[in-house]
Computed example of a mutant assay.
Amino acid sequence: MTISVLLADDEGMIRAGVRAILATDPGIEVVAEAADGRAAVELARAHRPRVALLDIRMPRLDGLAAAAEIRRLVPGTAVAVLTTFGDDDHVARALGDGATGFLLKAGDPRELLTGVRAVADGGAYLSPRVARRVIELSGTRMARRPAARDRAAVLTDRERDVLALVGAGLSNAEIARRLHLVEGTVKGYLSSVFIRLGVRNRVQAAILAYEAGLVDPDD
């Protein structure tokens, strides 16, 4: 099934670039575009896309407020936000505001495609570079590492392998191929990891993977 996407950014050049990247995947289709947050909410209600891809900084209604409105009015639409390293305060706020994807405008185009597919499938996606920045914002890695390692210590070896690959930004299908498992087994491991670690989604799991030293932030 084709993944329908609403794309919202107040910069036409950015929209054109993102649209061009998404067009390289035949399974993704941009069905509507908006230049401000209020229009994004209205278009989400009209088109009910599987994914709303929102810039954080937009006129009339910023991307985070628009994300909250879309999640309330169109609960079947997953939300991913586009950010830059200049959006530190917004990223910190976004972690609790219902968006399940965090993508860098200047990131690898493959991350954009992976992120859109991940949130469309009901998961969450955190760009590895965003994860690194979030950890820097929330405290030094070394200061947080002992506690994170203690939390990860309850996992089995295979669960730690899965957690590390989540932190590296891989989708369930990619993790399955890397570990020579079927995708359903990966989902089972993830459910167990979330319960054991007390995290709610892939974003929180990815951050903990970084804090525990399971992922090289410079990779």
Rank of each mutant, 00 (worst) to 15 (best):
P26G: 04
S127F: 04
M142N: 08
R200Q: 07
N201V: 09
G169T: 01
R149M: 15
E42F: 12
V79K: 02
S191Q: 12
T114K: 14
A148Y: 13
H90A: 14
V31E: 05
D157K: 08
L73T: 12
D108I: 05
E183A: 12
A20N: 02
D161L: 05
V166N: 05
S191C: 06
V182R: 12
L137P: 06
D10E: 07
A120G: 13
R144Q: 15
A173T: 10
A99M: 00
D36E: 14
G17V: 00
L82S: 06
I14Y: 12
D97R: 10
A209W: 04
R38P: 00
G169N: 02
V119F: 01
A99L: 01
P146C: 10
D97W: 10
R149T: 12
H180A: 15
E11G: 09
E174M: 14
I70N: 06
A8Q: 07
I70Y: 11
V193H: 02
D10T: 08
A176P: 00
S171D: 08
R45C: 14
K105Y: 06
V162E: 01
L54A: 08
V119Q: 00
D25F: 12
A176L: 00
G27M: 02
A78G: 11
V5G: 03
V5Y: 03
A120I: 10
A176V: 00
G122M: 07
I135L: 12
A168S: 15
D55G: 06
L214C: 06
G98I: 13
G122I: 10
V134A: 07
R48I: 10
F102T: 01
R177C: 11
I28Q: 08
A212K: 02
D219G: 01
L82T: 06
D87Y: 02
V215G: 04
L7E: 08
A173V: 11
L112A: 02
V30Y: 07
L181H: 12
V41R: 01
V119K: 00
M13Y: 13
V79M: 06
S192E: 13
I28F: 13
G96P: 09
D10H: 09
A67E: 10
H47I: 02
G213W: 12
G17K: 00
E211W: 12
I21C: 07
G86V: 09
V203Q: 03
G123F: 06
V30M: 04
A44N: 01
I135T: 12
G139A: 05
V119S: 00
R178Q: 15
L155V: 07
A118C: 13
E111M: 13
A209M: 03
G101K: 08
L155P: 02
L165R: 11
A68V: 15
L82N: 05
V203P: 10
V199Y: 03
M1L: 13
P146W: 09
A66E: 01
L197N: 06
V91L: 15
S191K: 11
T185W: 05
D150E: 15
G169H: 01
A106P: 06
V81F: 09
V203C: 04
G98T: 11
D9F: 01
H90W: 13
I175E: 02
A143K: 08
